[in-house]
């Protein structure tokens, strides 16, 4: 009987993990993916831990399993909230948004996404010194310029 109950809990947890996986694969923007993985992933891992505790039926295993479940329930929402705020502030795309942006004007939000901004700043730095190898005098392969030539050209 306890065997069947344990396997039922574990199967429910696996189903929740599959739901989290489909959310991660199918949803449109990063905030929706955070929504799918934090809630469904926590419940899936928690149910599997409950099933394992029932199956082992051991005092020590029950203690560690309960501690892990409580820890997951406390930390994953915090991490998800922090990540969602960081994603919004850094300008992640809101493709799946219906209606207005409720946080518009409440939080500062950068117009570009983080990856676009990093690509742009990389382009600017490469324009500023286009070919840094040429500037190094030790690598020049062409005619060696003597200091006399430099003085003549300076005059």
């Amino acid at each position: 009987m306890t065997e069947i109950l344990a396997v039922a809990f574990m199967l429910a947890g696996v189903i929740f993990l599959f739901a989290a996986m489909f959310g991660l694969l199918r949803f449109a923007d990063p905030l929706q993916r955070i929504h799918a993985t934090t809630k469904s992933g926590t419940v899936g891992a928690g149910l599997i831990l409950v099933g394992v505790m029932i199956q082992m039926g051991d005092g020590q295993a029950t203690f560690i399993g309960t501690a892990t479940v409580i820890f997951l329930m406390l930390t994953i929402p915090i991490a998800g909230h922090l990540l969602g705020r960081a994603a919004y502030v850094s300008g992640a795309r809101l493709d799946g948004l219906h209606g207005d942006d409720a946080l518009d004007g409440v939080l500062e939000r950068s117009p570009l996404t983080l990856d676009e901004y990093l690509a742009q700043s990389e382009k600017i730095t490469s324009q500023r010194n286009p070919e840094p190898d040429r500037a190094d005098p030790h690598i020049t392969v062409g005619e060696p310029t003597s200091p006399v030539d430099n003085q003549r050209s300076a005059r």
Binding site: A20, P30, T37, T38, G41, G44, L83
Partner: peptide, 27 residues
């Protein structure tokens, strides 16, 4: 994934699946 945020979301999910796998191996 195209953006860094997506990768971190996947990392978060990966640790959750890892906890589930560790529990199943214990059982």
């Amino acid at each position: 994934a195209k953006t860094l945020v997506d990768r971190v979301v996947a990392l978060d999910m990966l640790t959750g699946v890892g906890v589930a796998i560790a529990a199943l191996v214990a059982a």
